[in-house]
Design a protein around this nucleic acid. Structure first.
Lengths: 263, 263
DNA sequence: CGCATAGTTGAGGCTCCTCAATAGCCGTGG
DNA sequence: CCACGGCTATTGAGGAGCCTCAACTATGCG
């Protein structure tokens, strides 16, 4: 079941000899990074949690983690790369629900019905950990702090969705794209990656779908942001040259909204 | 702490003599209805859960269950009446996050930060149960099935928010109001109330705020739905005279959307 | 009865979508 | 090597939907 942990070693020079122990440690550390940051457990419990994690081999663009309707077995944690989740209609169209970056957990919405209610597709070559949920539940019975962290994790997801709800319900196209870029920036920063210089693994089409905007609108906004000096954009490569201004847009937006809606 | 359970007896004729036992049982049953439906526990565990529930005296329009920033202590379950949750800006404006009907739980988004991230205000005279979360967590350590139900509850909330996300991101004003009305209808039905004949406890302003629409748009839509024979509306009193047509609108909407967004 | 608030209705404008055409990128194959 | 088709992204013109502003009506409360 547990595939050996080569998934974390893409940066290792070819031909270099590596001990089995060093692989195990590297993988452990990677798992620690991605799981324990959100879960915040004590070291000895991390050990026990680690023992139930499955490390699958790397996935490639277009691979599915799961599809809507699949029986729910595991949560997934992105280690490297990115994954999109989406709901799909019988006709083959889709609605993007989220983009998931390293350290983020996928599948929390499937616990209730014991079946996945959306699909998860890999956007670029990615490493993903699998957490069998049954095992996780068993473990959380014996580790109260794990249980507490699970509650927090689920609660955080709810609070996050609430923010998205505000975004889509109230904000202009401009604010939506700014919020999206700022969110990416902050999530990259949290993972030690550059918050101002990154590649978008998703298409303009997917961004528009996610934000409730037409592709053309997204494209025009990128152009306008570029002209206004907020960022440099070359196809999928983004450089945020004026992060403050983008933050200001996002912060300011709700204030204006609220001013109009005084009851 | 535990206020006597007169909250559930509003229908009892004045002057009628009631034994203490009958009050206790009535209240227990009410709690059972509201809590165990979503939680789905075994009877003996329900007993234990019931023992930690606080039954507060009835609340009135404008009362707060909690305000944004308050320390998180308890979840709340609406027994009768209705409650709205909203985020507010320093300027005093607000953004409605949800309307909560009998049987529904409030406060799940506060677990993560151990503080409330939104405020909850009572819309009409309401009875609300309080579940001290610390006690609930302790209990869920000793009752694995309660833990499982808690996970399900939180997961269900995430899935629900996801649906709202689709609603606000993609649907027309017409579809939003139809979805809103259908949601109310289904939730009333689930609680044994009429799914086609009910009073709105919230203002047009609050509905518009919730759905991301201007008050005027909401008003115009009610008029149009009335003209089209979908419903009868007299101020806050709503009668859905063609529930099928409303369902058809909601179902059909995503299909058209998806057709346009084929990748 | 008068004021404040909630709700309705109309006119006009802005934002964003739709449709359509063009330009860039990439793999395939001549 | 370039040609070609397919796909993604960009840009422009026009239009639909919803918001804004404003006036008016209805309701409730002192």
């Amino acid at each position: 079941m547990n595939t050996p942990a080569l998934t974390t070693l893409t940066a290792v020079p070819e031909g270099k000899v590596i001990s089995f122990e060093s692989i195990r440690v590297a993988c452990r550390n990677c798992t620690l990074m991605t799981l324990c940051l959100p879960l915040g457990l004590a070291p000895e419990d991390v050990e026990r949690l680690d023992s139930i994690v499955r490390r699958n081999r790397p996935l490639h663009r277009g691979d599915f983690l799961f599809q809507s309707g699949d029986r729910f077995r595991s949560l997934f944690v992105v280690k490297t790369g990115s994954v999109k989740t989406f709901a799909q209609s019988p006709e083959g169209g889709e609605q993007v629900l989220g983009f998931h970056l390293p350290g983020e957990i996928i599948g929390l919405d499937a616990i209730d019905k014991d079946a996945h209610v959306c699909s998860a597709k890999v956007l670029e070559t990615s490493a993903v950990c699998e957490l069998p949920f049954g095992r996780l539940e068993e473990l959380s019975v014996t580790i109260p702090s794990l249980q507490h962290q699970m509650y927090r994790l689920l609660s955080k997801e709810i609070a996050h969705e609430t923010e998205m709800l505000l975004l889509l319900g109230k904000k202009s196209a401009e604010d939506r794209l700014a919020t999206f870029l700022l969110s990416l920036s902050q999530r990259f920063r949290k993972r030690g990656l550059s918050p101002t210089d990154f590649y978008l693994s998703m298409s303009r089409h997917e961004i528009g779908n996610y934000l409730g905007l037409a592709v053309e609108t997204v494209s025009r906004l990128f152009t306008r942001f570029h002209e206004e000096g907020l960022l440099k954009v070359d196809r999928k490569h983004i450089q945020l040259t004026n992060l403050d201004a983008i933050e200001a847009m996002v912060i300011r937006a709700p204030v204006e909204e609220f001013r109009r809606r005084i009851s």
